[in-house]
């Protein structure tokens, strides 16, 4: 039972680590960006707050872009991206048009329009679950999750049949969570959303970590 939180200098790794420990105290959690260690764990978390371009730069600095693509696509390593970490799963972002994301899920990330509500989108908001095929949102207490972001993936129509997702409305409709087989992403912070958030982390761990 071993998981890695990918430590590339862009995420609130302590809160995530604490949340995983709360879900299962037995799990061995490592914080790392070393390829060798990432290879050896059962599953990966990609946290992240901040700027898309800066995050891509950091990932490149540790040669993680191609490495993660290969690990996830060819070796089927489960990966859970949170907030900016979910945005990085997509192809690109308006926030930094010249930086390429991991391209694991089709679509781009764009800025919220500024009306009628204020941006950034900060606080608890309610998600609408679109498809119950996936496992992420099974047995969750409530659909209220903590969001803090100014950009979001909005191309719901680009998600293919392999994807389950939930959506949320804030000035624009956007993808709140996505589950494409072993690739999971949440725009909200499960580690900051109390019991419902811990439930999602638990679902991921129960499914992929033995």
């Amino acid at each position: 039972m071993k998981i890695a939180i990918i430590d590339y200098g862009m995420g609130n790794i302590h809160s995530l680590k604490a949340a995983i420990k709360e879900v299962n105290p037995e799990i061995d959690i490592i914080l790392t960006n070393e390829h060798k260690s990432l290879n050896r764990v059962d599953a990966l978390f990609l946290p992240g707050v901040g700027h898309f371009g800066a995050a891509v730069e950091k990932l490149q600095q540790y040669s993680l872009i191609e490495f993660l693509r290969e690990l996830v696509l060819e070796k089927n390593k489960p990966l859970f991206g949170i907030c900016l970490g979910m945005q990085l799963l997509f192809d690109s972002s308006d926030e930094s048009p010249n930086s390429k994301g991991l391209g694991l899920i089709e679509g781009s990330v764009t800025k919220f329009k500024n009306e009628p509500y204020k941006v950034p989108h900060i606080g608890f908001n309610t998600i609408t679950v679109n498809s119950r095929n996936g496992d992420m949102l099974n047995n969750i207490d409530s659909n209220d999750f903590y969001f803090v972001h100014s950009y979001a993936a909005k191309e719901i129509d680009k998600l293919n049949d392999n994807c389950s997702y939930s959506r949320c409305l804030y000035n624009d409709e956007f993808i709140a969570s996505v589950e494409k087989k072993h690739i999971w992403g949440t725009q909200f912070h499960p580690e900051k959303s109390q019991r419902s958030g811990l439930g999602i982390i638990k679902n991921f761990i129960n499914k992929y970590v033995d």
Binding site: N12, H14, S15, A18, A19, E22, Y146, K192, S193, Q194
Partner: peptide
């Protein structure tokens, strides 16, 4: 801050 992050799961 380290202690708080360990104990609570709200922002």
């Amino acid at each position: 801050v380290v202690k708080i992050a360990r104990e609570i799961n709200i922002p």
